[in-house]
Each structure stands twice: as C-alpha cells, then as structure tokens.
Design a protein around this nucleic acid. Structure first.
Lengths: 126, 126
DNA sequence: TATGGTACTAACAAATTTGTAAGTAATGGG
DNA sequence: CCCATTACTTACAAATTTGTTAGTACCATA
C-alpha cells in the first residue's frame, strides 16, 4: 500500500510463508481489509468506481482505490476505462477470480456456522 | 494482539465488514501472519509448542504464542497443559477447524494455479 | 550450587496498514 | 467564466501488527 521495505524481517517472513504454503499465499491475495467485500460486490457483474463506493459503507475513496489497484495487480479484477468526461471506469472479476466463487461460498457457510458456535459458547459460559 | 482501541474508525469498520459478510468474517479468523501455517502443521495431529516452533522457520516464540492464543480464543485449536516439569503443552485442531480442511485444500490448489498464471503473465510480458 | 530444558511473558521498537483532509484534471452546461 | 461530476492523488497522522531482546518459573540432574 505504501511501499514496503525491501529486506525487513517482516517482508522476508512474508515471502517465506507465501512461498512455502500455497494456502497462505492464496489467503494473502485476498487479505486486505476491503478486498473480499469488493470482490463479492463484483460477483454479479461489472460495477463502476462510484457504485462500489456507494455499496460499501465506510470505505473511503483512497482505500477503495488502493484495494482496487492491488486486486488488479494480482490479476483478480479487470479495470476498464472509457474515454469520456466525466470519467467512467468499471471493474469486473477475472476468470481466475471467478474460480474462487464456489470456494468462497463454502468458506462463507463455515463462517456463519463458526459465528453461531462462538455465540452459543459465549452465552453458555455466562 | 496488543489491545485495540475500542472505537477507532478502524475497529468500527472491521466490525461492520465482519458482521455484514460471513466470508470476510471467516477470512479474518485465520488472518494473522502465521495462523494458517500453524493450522496446517496441526492438520496431522497434536504438536507441542516446541515442535511448532521448530517446524515454522522464522517464527519467534512471542509470535507463536500470540497466534496460538488467538486461535484458541477463536475456538480453532485446543490447548492442553500437562502438569509436568519441564512444562509440556500441546495443541490440536478443534472440530470446527477440521471442517476447514477440505476448503483449505481447494484454496491451496487455487493458490498454486494463481501463482503459475501470475508467473507466466509476468514472463510473457518481458 | 549451577545448569538445562520448556513454555512462556514483558517492555520496547520497527514496519505496515488504515484513515483524514484536501486537492486534481477534464469538459459540458448554465 | 463558473460550477458540477467522476475517478482518482497527495501528504500526513493514527492505529495495528510484527519483530527484538531479555527475562520468568519450575524442578531434575550434574
């Protein structure tokens, strides 16, 4: 997001874990604060910058831009600029991103289940 | 990890996205630097603290402790302390964590594929 | 009495991510 | 000429995560 230091321990550790573990690698690709939310919004087709901004409560234009840029760099979304004024830009999932959709659904179901389990274990410990 | 501020925008945003999106929620549960690696190591059964430390290159005892504590709090691992000297503690996946395994495998495959695609698109652009 | 092994904790510092506030460019419409 | 609209950028500050270093307790053994 800001540039990273090139040889910080932090950086080296990240390289190590993403190189040695494809699972960690995969999760890192979608690991920014707003990325999954953005990808989910795009699941049903293209959206413009302003549409994303309006659909995602709380995100600032700066954050939206940053996350979109990273997603684009990682090949998960495709950005299309139309030569118009005022500008028009839209975003859509790439093929490889679409392959994530069924996995997301399972993860999402798992999340819902986990949420319930945590809730019930909390309330039972009162 | 250190305590978080209670009403920072950051914190409120995180609450919002994890409450409104189960997928984001799920990914947040496994979102620490070393968490997935730890969970993977535990996939084949219990491991002691020192075994984890030795199997995960680069992790410090502090980080290992922190990540284990969070995983425990989130109900993904179970910690067992034996009343011995020197101390013995082991960690294992909980049931709900085990349910993630098949999903991990898919994600991991996706990661491997994504890695290749990125590589080939980089080399073809030289 | 000194040493060793295990699983940690504490105080601090560095790196990274996220958020705030205020711009910018281009052009059509009034 | 002035304003509105869209999709951004820039400089900065705050929050959060990660890493460094040096401890701790316990008891068995040398």
């Amino acid at each position: 997001m800001g540039k990273r230091k090139e040889n910080s321990t932090n950086m080296l550790n990240e390289s190590y874990i993403t190189e040695s573990c494809n699972l960690t690698y995969a999760v890192c690709k979608i690991g920014g604060r707003w990325k999954l939310l953005i990808l989910c919004k795009l699941e049903n087709g293209k959206l413009r910058f302003s549409e994303l901004r309006n659909q995602i409560k709380g995100i600032t234009e700066r954050m939206l831009t940053l996350q979109l840029r990273e997603l684009e760099k990682e090949g998960l979304i495709k950005r299309t600029v139309y030569a118009e004024v005022p500008p028009r830009v839209d975003y859509e999932l790439t093929e490889i991103a679409k392959e994530l959709v069924p996995i997301w659904n399972q993860l999402s179901n798992w999340g819902a289940k986990h949420k319930e389990i945590l809730l019930s274990s909390v309330s039972s410990s009162i």
